[in-house]
């Protein structure tokens, strides 16, 4: 398995990866609180992007409703913690199955009834919107007026209850991102990964050579939903407040998919690079605008839109394949 992990990776790529990991591990001791928060946001998008990429990048199923899984994970773990005092690490045991159930229902309905392409994307949006309106009326978790986790000024970090300082959250999301990367890498070089790529490239042909496309598409949805729900738990305990309007909204779903698209759909490193580029650039721009005394809502999103336009027109395969070529560490575009 370790061998499979590094097989066929050029030495220069390994060196770059190790260097990046070392820099990220050391970062909290170097940067200030603001930059640490920015890094947490970057890693959050890198992680969710990686999870989304399993569905779209590997198996070719365009989901525009991933906010659903974030929200289900977030609300489940937060509800267990607030109402019963149960640790989020136990809450995971409920959050993942609930998110997976959501994904499985969508996947089952869509794949069984042959709802594909654009229709599938719209179905995923519809379910996320359905959940948004539903949670607006779900008063056990606060309904539309929001759901709050107890906050205090913590002297020590309590990892068991995920209450504490940003540094704890930073290492947690870093670990999640690294783990997601490793899982995706192992999957891509295994049987299931090759089946996914075959389905993505030509589903009819994949079925013709005997791949059970329904089953493997379901695996992709389930894995993606489960991984995304973990990001939701992180979101809930990091931000300490949840509003259906914000958590499940279509614009959240779109934010989740920006990083992998800009980085490169279907690449392993694309979501990470995309998250760094997008959040890095937008924070820089925010700082510059703020310096000029301009603080208008919407500027960041217009910028995201223009980035997305630029990438989709000029670099349709994303930024990472291009960067990799320049660095001479070409990742096989899979």
């Amino acid at each position: 398995m370790i061998g499979q992990m590094f097989e066929g990776v050029p030495a220069r790529a390994l060196a770059c990866g190790a260097l990046l990991l070392a820099a990220l591990l050391a970062a909290p001791y170097v940067v200030n609180d603001y930059l640490l928060t920015v890094l947490i946001i970057i890693l959050y998008y890198a992680y969710t992007g990686q999870a989304w990429n399993i569905m779209m990048g590997f198996a070719g199923q365009l989901s525009l409703g991933h906010a659903l899984y974030v929200g289900l994970g977030a609300y489940t773990a937060a509800a267990f913690y607030v109402h019963f005092g149960i640790s989020p690490w136990i809450g995971i045991l409920a959050a993942i199955p609930i998110a997976i159930a959501g994904g499985a229902i969508i996947g089952f309905l869509a794949f069984r009834f042959r709802v594909g392409g654009v229709y599938f994307a719209i179905l995923t949006i519809a379910f996320a919107e359905f959940a948004r309106v539903g949670f607006d009326h779900f008063n056990w978790v606060g309904g539309s007026s929001g759901f709050f986790l107890p906050v205090a000024n913590y002297a020590v970090s309590d990892l068991w209850n995920l209450r504490g300082k940003p540094m704890m959250f930073y290492y947690l999301i870093l670990a999640m991102t690294v783990l997601a990367f490793v899982i995706c890498r192992l999957l891509l070089t295994s049987r299931i990964g090759y089946f996914w790529l075959a389905i993505r490239e030509d589903e009819e042909a994949a079925r013709a050579i005997g791949i059970d496309t329904f089953r493997y598409k379901m695996y992709a949805v389930i894995l993606s939903a489960g991984m995304t729900s973990l990001a939701g738990i992180f979101f809930a305990f990091f931000y300490n407040n949840l509003f259906p309007e914000q958590v499940f909204h279509i614009s959240r779903s779109i934010e989740l998919i920006l990083a992998p698209i800009i980085g490169g759909v279907g690449t392993l490193f694309g979501p990470i690079l995309g998250a760094f580029l997008l959040t890095g650039l937008s924070e820089t721009m925010h700082a510059i605008l703020y310096g000029f005394g301009i603080d208008i809502p919407g500027v960041k999103q217009v910028f995201y839109g223009l980035c997305l336009l630029f990438v989709v027109i000029v670099l349709p395969h994303g930024v990472w394949p291009w960067v990799a070529r320049v660095l001479g560490i070409k990742e096989r575009r899979s």
Binding site: M56, L62, V118, I261, G298, K300, V302, G305, L309, V312
Partner: peptide, 28 residues
């Protein structure tokens, strides 16, 4: 027009980007 022969998801993302600019342009 340059996108009419591109894959479905890439057309979709192009228009998502246009929509994002429009909504937030109006917001500004």
């Amino acid at each position: 027009n340059p996108f009419i022969n591109r894959p479905e998801h890439s057309q979709f993302i192009l228009l998502v980007a246009v929509a994002l600019v429009m909504v937030n342009g109006l917001l500004i």
